[in-house]
Design a protein around this nucleic acid. Structure first.
Length: 370
RNA sequence: GUGGAUAUAGUUCAGUUGGCUAGAACGCUAGAUUGUGGCUCUAGAGGUCGUGGGUUCAAGUCCCACUAUUCACC
């Protein structure tokens, strides 16, 4: 009896949008879901309690970072990531494949694995798919990701093909090495921005799909319409019975477009990152709280918002905190931004339930200034 | 009161033996941020160089007076 299962509760008639229940060893996740990112075993500036208050169902953490510091063995000794960071809901760890791509000036990729230098102290490390599985198993997340090669926007056809072949061969090795029933291994679909490669990749990962599938290599600086075109191309070929995870997305508009195209899971650093730089999500678009026009604005970030920050603090105060580089400012906007996205997911689910997702999305995007 | 020092962007300061549209840092203003190497990154505004004279082809720079600030001593 598997510890994982996915059930579609409601399928939208007009679009790919759907509501699902994803059961994991640490509880049931209602999809579509947004996962806050906690790279270093913490969602920057927030406590697990605050995340729960914001209805975060699952968080993401990062293999690359935890492997380098404090080291996966220490996390294992602590009793696993859940115990280590005091988070008893589901956790997903990214494989580090993306870091290999984003830290490219430090890396050397071969078919066997990746050699790279630590950004912390320059020490050389070598990661293979097998090693990556070993690390992610030690970390102990509920969902783990295959070790993949993520290409940049602008990679030529040959490079994209080569990366896809490598990703497929690495997936095979991850799959064979991974023998832990407590963890769901998600294959990652690559193929850069070539529709036929994307379709081919979506088909080729099918034999490796047990509990879920991820779409990687998007949202890497391309125009948004290109990402949507790739999603359109892949949509007919996804497995139906598992959740689909669009990695690294995103902004409210991208999430809506993703849900419409059958995506169930999203993660993004955006809400916490822009919070630290003084920008908040609102239903009408981004609000740069740091700006001078809010100096004497004693309204909450967003009128009617039920988050802790909006219930208790004003734009003028938060602006002051951000300008004074006080940590509490980053905390308050992070709380608001994560609340904003989890609340968006609630609204999306409600719309799907009531068979009005398409209308909801169009109305929402009419008000949301990108 | 006497003697010295200083006066350049909002602030703290650079500015060579006089030589192009006077610079920096911070601050300010506005953008960016998508599987987090980010208290980050990008751009912009802002100065009749204390005031008034003088010397010179040319003065932020040299000379004089005044004003302000500041230090020391009466």
């Amino acid at each position: 009896m598997s510890k994982f299962s996915f059930e579609t509760i409601k399928q939208d008639e007009k679009t790919g949008a759907r509501i699902g229940q994803f059961t994991t060893p640490h509880g049931v996740i209602e999809t579509p879901v947004f996962m806050p990112v906690g790279t270093q075993a913490t969602v920057k500036s927030l406590s697990p309690e605050e995340l729960k208050e914001n209805n975060s169902q699952i968080i993401l953490s990062n293999t690359y970072h935890l492997y380098l510091r404090p080291g996966h063995e220490i996390v294992k000794k602590a009793g696993g990531l859940h115990k280590f960071m005091n988070w008893d809901r589901p956790i997903l760890t990214d494989s580090g494949g993306f870091q290999v791509f984003s830290l490219s000036d430090l890396r050397k990729i071969s078919d066997d694995g990746v050699e790279f230098r630590s950004h912390l102290n320059g020490a050389k490390h070598y990661i293979t798919p097998e090693k990556d599985m070993e690390i992610q198993e030690a970390l102990g997340a509920d969902i783990i990701m295959a070790f993949d090669e993520c290409t940049t926007y602008g990679t030529d056809r040959k490079g994209a093909e080569r990366a896809l072949e490598r990703t497929m061969s690495w997936l095979d090795r991850c799959y064979k090495y991974h023998q832990n029933d407590d963890q769901a291994l998600f294959p990652i679909i690559q193929g850069n921005f070539y529709k036929d490669l994307r379709i081919e990749a979506t088909k080729r990962i099918l034999p490796y799909v047990k509990h879920g599938v991820a779409i990687g290599g998007l949202s890497v600086g391309e125009p948004k319409h290109m990402m949507y075109e790739m999603l359109d191309a892949m949509q007919p070929y996804y497995p139906v019975h598992v959740p689909r995870y669009l990695m690294g997305v995103g902004s409210p508009d991208c999430i809506l477009e993703g849900v419409e195209r059958g995506i169930d899971m999203f993660d993004c650093v955006l809400p916490t990152r822009i919070a630290r730089n003084g920008t908040a999500f609102t239903k009408t678009g981004k609000l740069v709280v740091r700006n001078g026009e809010y100096k004497e604005d004693f309204r909450p970030i967003e009128e009617g918002c039920t988050c802790y920050a909006c219930q208790n603090y004003t734009r003028a105060y938060i602006r002051h905190l951000i300008n004074a580089k006080e940590i509490f400012g980053a905390r308050l906007i992070s709380i608001h931004n994560i609340h904003f996205l989890t609340n968006l997911m609630e609204e999306i689910k409600q719309a799907i339930r009531e068979d009005r997702f398409k209308e909801f999305k169009e109305e929402y995007l009419k008000n949301y200034k990108i």
